[in-house]
């Protein structure tokens, strides 16, 4: 079943064209890597897919709803309830503990503190960072912080997680740990993932890849 489809996306920032006819389609539970050189438009494509940016032209449909037809409020509600996000760094609230960070999306969804925190504890354990629950993000290592961020993205049981260079700031060994635990968790829960990365070894965790070059995307032909 197709979950998310984007067609013929165009987006410019002032005179700079970032997307000039990009598209992508992703099925439920599918893990797709978006690859390409830096500046090619990967992040812009991800932001359009997730309804963070409005494309100048083209459509994005999530479960047959055209994101362009939704009000800003409806789109941010969709992001809160159906999507999860992992960025390269800096996504956790520095004043909150890791546990409170993971519980935050559930609190915003109206869950009681105790219920939200007990689910956050499970999430941290699944990503093997239960031991940093009481620490603030600044007191954890880069790899632990990214695992906390993954736990937070997963805690609302989203249908799609958008991950933009989730291992970009980590060394290879920590990057591997994050990818293994992240992918193990999403495969178990059947969550789809849009994974932006320029690293082939990270892209190899996905089911398939889409290459973006100069604002255009291309599904890669399967060889053989």
């Amino acid at each position: 079943m197709t979950l998310l489809v984007a067609e013929d996306l165009h987006k410019a920032f002032g005179p700079t064209p970032a997307l000039v006819g990009a598209g992508l389609s992703i099925g439920a539970g599918e893990i797709v890597a978006i690859m390409g050189p830096s500046g090619s438009g990967k992040s812009t494509l991800l932001h359009c897919l997730a309804g963070i940016l409005r494309p100048d032209r083209g459509t994005v449909r999530y479960q047959d709803v055209d994101l362009g037809s939704l009000s800003d409020g409806k789109r941010s509600e969709l992001r809160r309830t159906e999507f999860g996000f992992v960025f390269q760094f800096g996504q956790l609230v520095p004043e909150l503990t890791c546990l409170e960070n993971v519980a935050l999306p559930l609190r915003l969804a109206g869950l009681k503190r105790r219920d939200a925190e007990s689910r956050a504890v499970e999430g941290l354990a699944r990503l093997e960072v239960a031991d940093v629950a009481g620490k603030r993000p600044g007191e954890t290592s880069g790899g632990q912080g990214q695992r906390v961020a993954v736990a937070r993205a997963l805690v609302t049981s989203p249908k799609v997680i958008f991950a933009d260079e989730p291992t970009g700031a980590l060394d290879s060994l920590n990057g591997e740990r994050v990818m293994t635990l992240f992918l193990g968790a999403v495969r178990a829960s059947g969550t789809a993932v849009v994974l932006v990365t320029h690293e082939p070894r990270v892209a190899a965790y996905a089911d398939r890849e889409v290459v973006v070059r100069d604002g255009r995307s291309r599904e890669v032909e399967r060889a053989g």
Binding site: P200, A203, A204, D207, R222, G224
Partner: peptide, 16 residues
């Protein structure tokens, strides 16, 4: 280059 790239990534997925 493209088809070689796809073949390489397929091999990398299997190894991963």
């Amino acid at each position: 280059l493209d088809s070689q790239r796809a073949a390489h990534l397929d091999a990398m997925r299997v190894l991963t």
